[in-house]
């Protein structure tokens, strides 16, 4: 379901343009081939879905056809509604992520470096980690109201832990033999952090960022579904009340697509920053 947005676009024929090129392009062709391979299943599902809907097997209130969803998408886009909702959602998720992720990185570094910080802080964090969003939501609303603050804090709470945990793990996983090198080269304390520990922990930190971004989006859904007057989550709740199932689908697809885009961005960062790594990339990859 996640890729429905893409499916719709390719269902309109762009995929057919790409396919014949695939064979001739060499390296680039390999990339297209991989894309086509990834699209095959979604396109098939969408095709069957459209057929089932068009033939009238399922009520459109329960499951609108892909074309109806596309129509709703176009309408929402043209009226500017979608963009407005999306904007507010993105702002909330970003602030929440920056707050939670930033604190996660900070405390992850702190707890990773200092044993005393680990002993005094980590048990508390581990306890807070196990509390689900839905359990603290009533408290957050009680304390901070229905406004932006409680939403952002909820998102931040979710985004905090993956970065915190992975930064900590990354620091503790640094090859101790390299510390000996740092001693021989007389690294200062600051250099030890900036030249050895952070670069060595970077793969884990970026993994934490990826997971945190995903959780920030999940937190956003919970926050917006619980009560708000704007945002993609609100758009979904509102549409559900009026049985506009197609709009519900548009909302879900938007969540999926934006989630995928942010994930791709971090992967892009990973490829740039971690190109020194020499890891197993799976069978049958190209170069």
């Amino acid at each position: 379901m996640e890729n429905t947005e893409k499916m719709i676009r390719t269902a309109h024929g762009s995929e057919r343009v790409l396919a014949p090129r695939a064979g001739k392009l060499g390296k680039g062709g390999g990339k297209w081939k991989a894309t086509v391979r990834g699209l095959f299943l979604p396109v098939l599902i969408v095709g069957i879905w459209q057929m089932v809907g068009s033939l009238g097997f399922v009520s459109p209130t329960l499951l609108p056809t892909p074309l109806e969803i596309a129509e709703a998408f176009v309408q929402l886009t043209l009226s500017g509604e979608l963009l407005a909702h999306l904007k507010i959602s993105v702002v909330r998720a970003s602030i929440g992520f920056l707050l939670g992720g930033g604190l996660g990185l900070l405390f992850g570094l702190l707890v990773g470096f200092f044993n005393k910080a680990e002993q005094s802080l980590d048990p508390t964090f581990q306890m807070i980690k196990t509390i689900p969003h839905l359990a603290v939501l009533p408290l957050f609303i009680l304390w901070f109201g229905f406004g932006e603050l409680s939403k952002i804090l909820l998102i931040a709470k979710g985004a905090f832990f993956p970065i915190y945990l992975n930064t900590f793990l990354g620091i503790r996983g640094v090859d101790s033999r390299l510390f000996e090198v740092a001693r021989v080269l007389e690294f200062s304390r600051l250099q030890l952090i900036t030249k050895l520990i952070v670069p060595a922990a970077l793969p884990n930190i970026l993994l934490g960022v990826r997971l945190s971004l995903g959780i920030a989006w999940l937190g956003l859904v919970v926050a917006e579904l619980m009560g708000s007057s704007e945002g993609i989550g609100y758009m979904i709740t509102d549409a559900r009340q009026f049985s506009q199932t197609a709009i519900v689908f548009v909302g879900i697809i938007i969540f999926a697509v934006v989630g995928k885009i942010t994930d791709s961005f971090v992967r892009f960062l990973e490829n740039r920053l971690l190109k020194w790594r020499d890891n197993y990339k799976g069978e049958g990859t190209m170069a």
């Binding site: 033999r177 090198v181 690294f187 200062s188 050895l196 970077l202």
Partner: peptide, 23 residues
């Protein structure tokens, strides 16, 4: 006292010239 270990112990995230320069 410079020290060369049995394994090279280079920083894997640095290029050759940056490894030599290190700090």
């Amino acid at each position: 006292q410079g020290f060369i270990f049995q394994e090279h112990r280079l920083f894997p995230w640095l290029t050759v010239e940056k490894n030599i320069a290190a700090d």
